[in-house]
């Protein structure tokens, strides 16, 4: 039971200790500094490139880091094309996370999206992230996605804020849309009502799990 509980953490840790690990450099997988720490303290510099790989775990961690970074892209997209990209996954459950690099709560929740991808991709669940950052923030947004191990379709909306706010009827982010296998929007979670703000744990995950079991 404990092992079952720990596996997702280990997975998260592996993908989390990604490209960067400045202060905890070299401690990716040592018992004194658990891998989770590595993800938390990760910032400017790559632990993989700067530090000697003293343990097999560390070497594995670094290899996995490289692979994760390699699989993460951030594409610019127009609102209408994004809608088409979502529709293209009809037949699957689609989770769309709207976020931005400046958005603290978005980034706090983001690992849950990565985890859904990792654990439910083969159950027909597709994850998509949509950044609403300004073009100047593109590189910073990509760096966060890489650090998070977001190996799924990542887009940055090119339209001005007013476009998506009106079309999605959202005041702002964070927001998550979930689509069922028929391509219908099953839920729109946001922060727009102070008394009804979502979390992945309480709202998104249970719904996705339910929809994923419906064929």
């Amino acid at each position: 039971m404990l092992a079952r509980l720990l596996i997702p953490f280990a997975l998260l840790a592996l993908t989390g200790c990604i490209p960067t690990g400045g202060t905890k450099c070299g401690s990716c997988a040592t018992p004194e500094a658990p891998p989770e720490d590595c993800a938390v303290t990760a910032n400017e510099e790559s632990c993989c490139s700067k530090c000697p790989k003293t343990t097999a775990e560390e070497a594995a961690c670094c290899e996995s880091s490289k692979a994760t970074v390699a699989g993460v892209e951030l594409k610019n997209i127009k609102f209408d094309d994004l809608s088409k990209a979502i529709e293209a996954h009809k037949g699957k459950v689609v989770v769309v996370d709207i976020w931005a690099n400046f958005c603290v709560p978005c980034k706090k929740e983001f690992p849950h999206l990565v985890k859904i991808h990792e654990t439910m991709h083969d159950k027909g669940v597709v994850c998509i992230s949509v950044s609403v950052d300004e073009p100047e923030q593109h590189a910073a947004a990509l760096a966060f996605l890489q650090k998070s191990g977001a190996k799924f379709a990542n887009y940055r909306l090119e339209d001005p804020n007013t476009v998506w706010q009106e079309k999605w009827d959202l005041n702002g982010i964070p927001a998550v849309f979930v689509y069922d296998r028929d391509g219908k929007q099953a839920a729109k979670f946001s922060f727009d009502d102070p008394d009804n703000q979502f979390t992945y744990e309480a709202n998104v995950l249970p719904l996705v799990q339910k929809l994923a079991t419906t064929k």
Partner: peptide, 12 residues
């Protein structure tokens, strides 16, 4: 008007 900015996160 529609407010524009970062989300306020309310504690549960």
């Amino acid at each position: 008007t529609r407010p524009v900015g970062c989300g306020v996160q309310y504690n549960r």
